[in-house]
Structure formats: structure tokens, C-alpha cells
């Protein structure tokens, strides 16, 4: 599987993402600087990492979503290529219009950094197929703006079409319907606030994130 990790000024989980991808795929991901206009041919997955791109100025992910590289990411997604946005990457995907809704300040106003229990709400996707529907997993979160909001029609549509990928097992940050991660209609774009790349090796004390990457490997070989 050929993958790339986009690096924005202020990204800080890009290395973790690259380590996780190399660990699972056996191939070193390409680092894509935000100002690049084109992505290498033959990429299977583009990951948008966590962090505070452009200082989270204006809105989290707002400036990064308009970066030059994002036109190539949008093109990759339109061709059916896989796109994974974690934390700030999820915020970038909503700001870029690749995923619906918006991520707002946590309801309690606190930055929340801890492990959270999650339910895998959609299993028939390239990202979640290794878990099984309804699987209970634990992943770390670390965010200030993870409160997912959308209008009721959009939330109904996401649920009806099985596009809610992950749900918090308890109220965490005020997210509508406890949504922790969503898919686009084509199910080739996933955005989630929890950090699967921080739960991929024994030293992390948790391997629940690893299965997300292993599932992708199974799809793409």
C-alpha cells in the first residue's frame, strides 16, 4: 500500500502517522508539504495528521483546508482514493467540504486528553472492516475542538446511510449524537477525532488503532 502524510505548518502528529503507516504497511509513506500542487501517482491513501495547522487561526483547519495540496487531496478522493483525517485532519476535511458538519469548541471548553471508549458504528468500510460492527474499542483523544455539529437533516442522513464510523461510548465533548468519526458517501474518506496512530504498538499499551491500518492493508494489499 502506497501512502502519503500531508504536513502543514503546525502539524504535530505527522511523524506518528508515518511511523504507524510504515509499521503496518512495511512501506515508508511520502511526506507531502502543504504547498505542493501535485501528489505522486499511485497513492492508495493520503492521511491528514493531527496538530494545530496554521496555529488553528480563524478556525481549526480553516487555513489548511485551502492549502494548495488540498486540491490534489480532493482530486484523489474524487477518484475513489482513500483519505484519512485524524483530529486536526478531520477538522481540515470538514473545512474542505470533503466531509459534512463542523468541529466546534468542546462543550466543557476544556482541552481533553485521555483514552475514550468507542463503538465501531459502521464496519463495512475500508477503514473499519477489521473491527466488526458494534466492536467496543479504546483510543486516545487529545483535542480542544472536537465537538461535532451538523444540522439535524445531515445527522439523520449520516445515520440512515451508515456513515457514522465511530461513536463515543459516553458523552465526551458535546458532539451531536456522540459522533466521533464520519465517512463521506463513497466511504473512501474518513475523519475521526480519536488517534488510531497512537495505539499501534505494544509500547503504547493499546493496539486498538492498529486494526484500522490493517483493515486498509487488507483492502489494498
Amino acid at each position: 500500500m502506497n501512502s502519503a502524510v500531508v504536513v502543514f505548518p503546525g502539524s504535530n502528529c505527522d511523524r506518528d502517522m508515518m511511523v504507524a503507516l510504515e509499521l503496518v504497511t512495511g512501506r515508508r509513506p511520502v511526506a507531502l508539504w502543504h504547498a505542493e500542487a501535485e501528489v505522486p501517482a499511485g497513492l492508495d491513501l493520503i492521511a491528514l495528521p493531527g496538530g494545530f495547522s496554521h496555529g488553528d487561526y480563524l478556525r481549526a483547519g480553516a487555513i489548511a483546508a485551502r492549502a494548495r495540496v488540498m486540491r490534489a487531496v480532493i482530486g484523489h478522493a474524487a477518484r475513489g482514493g482513500l483519505v484519512l483525517g485524524v483530529c486536526n485532519g478531520f477538522q481540515v476535511l470538514t473545512e474542505a467540504g470533503l466531509l459534512p458538519g463542523a468541529l466546534m469548541r468542546n462543550a466543557g471548553l476544556d482541552f481533553i486528553c485521555r483514552d475514550v471508549a468507542l463503538e465501531v458504528a459502521a464496519a463495512d468500510t475500508p477503514f473499519t472492516r477489521a473491527y466488526g460492527a458494534g466492536a467496543a474499542i479504546t483510543l486516545p483523544i487529545a483535542h480542544h475542538d472536537g465537538n461535532f455539529q451538523a444540522d439535524p437533516e445531515t445527522l439523520d442522513r449520516l445515520e440512515r446511510e451508515g456513515l457514522v464510523a465511530f461513536r463515543y461510548a459516553e458523552a465526551v465533548n458535546g458532539s451531536a449524537r456522540d459522533i466521533a468519526g464520519i465517512l463521506n458517501a463513497g466511504r473512501n474518506v474518513l475523519g475521526l477525532m480519536p488517534h488510531p496512530e497512537r495505539a499501534v504498538e505494544e509500547a503504547h499499551g493499546n493496539l486498538d488503532g492498529r486494526r484500522l491500518f490493517e483493515g486498509l492493508l487488507g483492502v489494498l494489499a
Partner: peptide
């Protein structure tokens, strides 16, 4: 519309 406001919210 393009940048300064997120018209979703």
C-alpha cells in the same frame, strides 16, 4: 463565503 466564515455554522 470562501474562507472567513464557515457557512455550516
Amino acid at each position: 463565503r470562501r474562507l472567513l466564515a464557515n457557512i455550516v455554522i
